[in-house]
Design a protein around this nucleic acid. Structure first.
Lengths: 129, 129
DNA sequence: ACAGGATACCTAGCCCGGCTATGGTTTGGC
DNA sequence: GCCAAACCATAGCCGGGCTAGGTATCCTGT
């Protein structure tokens, strides 16, 4: 996979996965991996900074879930409430905010235009032969 | 246009344009602009460094054409032959090398896989509703 | 019991490439 | 004469994906 191409799409992919339900970093990467048929291997060094970015921009809300707890809960506390921010195997779930949902739509539209642009250029055939 | 998305595609677009005939920087930008329906506004700061990169990698061969001369010539000298590398309105034409043609094919294939990957992720619908 | 791998998160710093800004020359329209 | 367009080039900014290194838990195999 050409990681250059990935620039700018990572956030869209994350938002898109979260649009189908709350999830956490590791699982998001797995989902993207399987749904792209093994193509997108999101690296931790891209994934986590992206999640933090999106959270800072209020496109995502994050909440910690203690180890042993079942899947994505209905509601939960905001910020550093659970388990004191401590130990291992805990998960940080993310939820799309309304603002995030709007941003996803914008990014999808942008992607459509971009892909159309590329098709426009690549679609041309040689004039000579 | 989201310039982040452009990362990695600029070179492919340039190679693709040149696959249809020799051209020079300014004209390449115009071609890409019109064929992408006004979407890709290649900036000089991206375009020229990209051309130099591709030339260094031997994917392109460049040759200068003096002002007043007609369109892309059949054959011409390699490197700094014409007009001493000097004055204004001269154009630097580029020609795809065999290696460049192969690289273009590789980049197109990569793009196909990438776009398919994105479609795979974005194509999923919400499980809930 | 213990190694090793999968799960799960975080961050510093590298590196690449698109962008802004600047600078130069020639031609052409007003 | 002036200013825009055509044409090329490069220094340096900056954002973001990556490598590499760190922490911690849980499960499986031997």
């Amino acid at each position: 996979m050409d990681s250059r191409l990935l620039s700018g799409t990572v956030e869209m992919l994350i938002l898109d996965v979260l649009a189908r339900g709350d999830s956490y970093g590791y699982q998001i990467a797995q989902t993207v991996l399987s749904q792209s048929d093994g193509y997108f291997q999101l690296k931790e060094g891209s994934l986590y900074p992206a999640l933090h970015r999106l959270e800072r921009q209020k496109l995502l809300g994050g909440y910690w879930v203690a180890p042993g707890a079942p899947g994505a809960p209905e509601t939960s506390l905001d910020g550093e409430a659970l388990s004191g921010g401590g130990g291992g195997r805990r998960r940080k779930y993310y939820r799309l905010t309304p603002k995030g949902r709007a941003a996803l739509k914008a990014k999808r539209d942008e992607w459509q235009r971009f892909a159309a642009g590329v098709s426009g250029v690549l679609g041309q055939r040689s004039v000579v032969a």
